[in-house]
Amino acid sequence: MADARTRRVKKEIQDIQNDRQAGLTIELVNDSIFHLIGSFPGPPGTCYEGGKFDVDIVVPETYPFVALKMKFLSKVYHPNISSASGAICLDILKDNWSPILTLKSTLISLQSLLCTPEPNDPQDAEVAKHYLTSKSSFEETARYWTETYARPQTNEGRGAPSGTSKTSHLPTVRDEVAMAGLERAHVEQFEALGFERGRVIEVLKRINYRGANVPKISEDTVVEELLK
């Protein structure tokens, strides 16, 4: 006979599979109901619209009394999500967990996190800086990331939901400048001075050479940073 945790998780998986309207999906990893991959569509009307975001879910031993362990598998450009590891900064996944929360409600919370970034409590400081400096530039980059990394697959099995397998099907090579959320003109300007492209992008990204910040940072400062 199954224990309470198993029964509840099974029921929750069924709930998600029965409710097609929300657009959520859930799959088992290694046939274990305690390690799952959930996905949800990017919220419409945001820069994440059209994407399909995969989340790695681990159900702890003491579930539902402690929080689910979740992290993004798709790369997301968002102040509260680490662009490197996919770690999520969300209160209900930490201290504000409640036993009444379910797989479904947590996935929907993540979806709504994409709608309402909280740059003052960031998980990724560089992205948060970008967001605060120029929201339009940030949205452009986020959209580009969504297109690059979170493109929904139709015909293919979803064994490897990481960005690389998806980008291989893109007609063009990934644009690093757009990926970093920088102006192409700025990058080319410093590239013309004889610096390597990758280095220029890295430095400009670090010092947040975007939007309203551009007039504040002198070219000499940038060159100094580049020479470091």
Partner: peptide, 11 residues
């Protein structure tokens, strides 16, 4: 009836 379901264990 869903009113008789415990929201913690879902039974």
């Amino acid at each position: 009836n869903s009113n008789l379901i415990c929201c913690i264990c879902r039974t």
